[in-house]
Design a protein around this nucleic acid. Sequence first.
DNA 1: GTAGCACCTCAACCTTACTTGAGGTCAAGG
DNA 2: CCTTGACCTCAAGTAAGGTTGAGGTGCTAC
Lengths: 155, 155
Amino acid sequence: MDKIEPVQFPQELSVGEVARRCGISVSAIRFYEAKGLIASWRSHGNQRRYPREVLRRVSIVKVAQRIGIPLASIKAALDALPKGRTPTAQDWRKLSARWQADLDGRIGRLTRLRDLMTGCIGCGCLSMKDCPLRNPCDELSGRGPGPQLIEPGRA
Amino acid sequence: MDKIEPVQFPQELSVGEVARRCGISVSAIRFYEAKGLIASWRSHGNQRRYPREVLRRVSIVKVAQRIGIPLASIKAALDALPKGRTPTAQDWRKLSARWQADLDGRIGRLTRLRDLMTGCIGCGCLSMKDCPLRNPCDELSGRGPGPQLIEPGRA
DNA sequence: GTAGCACCTCAACCTTACTTGAGGTCAAGG
DNA sequence: CCTTGACCTCAAGTAAGGTTGAGGTGCTAC
């Protein structure tokens, strides 16, 4: 088991390898594990060992995050899979369909907002009673306290 | 509760009035003031008094927030106005045009993501080397411990 | 003259998604 | 033997955008 240690496809990965191959930090990996998004067993020396499937799992997490799904919801979705298994291509189709609806919602809300703004550039009003921009009844307004999802947006 | 307001248009507003009329909490108003987004003077009894223009200003803040602009950037944009004045309709046109670009960018990113997902539902892959979803290079995420080149095999 | 309300300050707390640091273990290499 | 590097744990810190609470003031009303 020493000489034949497969360079290309090790069966189990250390936390550092997962981090490098997923492009995220070691602390983030440990954080995900603490949150129950991924799981590992331990090596003889008490080090984390991950199955190769963790790479797919982390990928799914990252994609969902880009969509704007909070980690807790991602965990819930993953947990809802049969036997808590690592998603197969099939599962991924279901998950992605579900999250795509979320994404569509977000895009829709932002698009409506853009349209409102386009209409409002002409009027420049923000008038109390006239301006639809002012009236957040359009929905969207925050879900409770705490930070809203902030994308890499700067100005 | 139905205290008879001094005529229709009080020239100055208390913090509670601003909160009620903007549909946000008193603590949020104070928070915005602490952050320098709005300003007030004090009444004889040390209570905050706001000019009527604060309503427009808060509206602008809320719209910008819906777009996804962080408060610090909103403050910067407002501060950049001549004399730090409360935005006129003219100013608002400029601000909104600027923020609309942000909004467009955000919508564009999400839309690209959606398209990628649509393509990926068919493939169900998330495959290491094939899947564009996995490679966040699409996004301008060069920040932090960003994504690194993923190579199958030894890196 | 005291209740009640709106207001005041300041500090601490909340959530999300992590990062950072202190202090310790383990295996390999010179 | 000693260092180096990767790993470990647990606590605390960070950022944004506020909220909550304690303790106190001021005005109006009954």
